[in-house]
């Protein structure tokens, strides 16, 4: 199932990556190489095998429900490009 240029463009938009028209073709070809590899993997018979989400046969550890963090806003905001009234400022977003 090779990708076409429209799909490359859409993926780039979703991932917020800028891919120029000149690079589109090369990106498509390289991704399609990866897809070919995936297709090879998908050809393997996996009937009756439970999908695996992780490589380890382990379960996750849980934490107790306790507040262990204190306010470090000042330190975090010291490296932020712009802050005001305790808020991080970002380019205007509207739905």
């Amino acid at each position: 199932m090779p990708l076409n240029l429209d799909q490359i463009e859409r993926l780039a938009r979703l991932a917020r990556i800028e891919i120029s028209a000149a690079d589109g073709g090369e990106t498509r070809d390289r991704l399609n190489d990866v897809f070919a590899l995936i297709e090879q993997l998908q050809a393997a018979d996996t009937r009756g095998i439970e999908p695996m989400a992780h490589a380890f046969e382990l379960a996750q550890r849980l934490r107790e429900d306790a507040v262990t963090e204190s306010d470090r806003r000042e330190a975090y905001q010291a490296v932020a490009p712009e802050v005001e009234a305790g808020l991080y400022l970002v380019p205007r977003v509207m739905e």
């Binding site: 934490r63 429900d65 262990t68 975090y76």
Partner: peptide, 24 residues
């Protein structure tokens, strides 16, 4: 209704000053 967040030890109390309950 938990005291701390789902994946961190920050407080979930409502109405705190902005970003004072947001850790790393």
């Amino acid at each position: 209704r938990t005291n701390s967040k789902i994946f961190s030890g920050s407080s979930t109390a409502f109405g705190a000053a902005p970003n004072t309950q947001a850790n790393a």
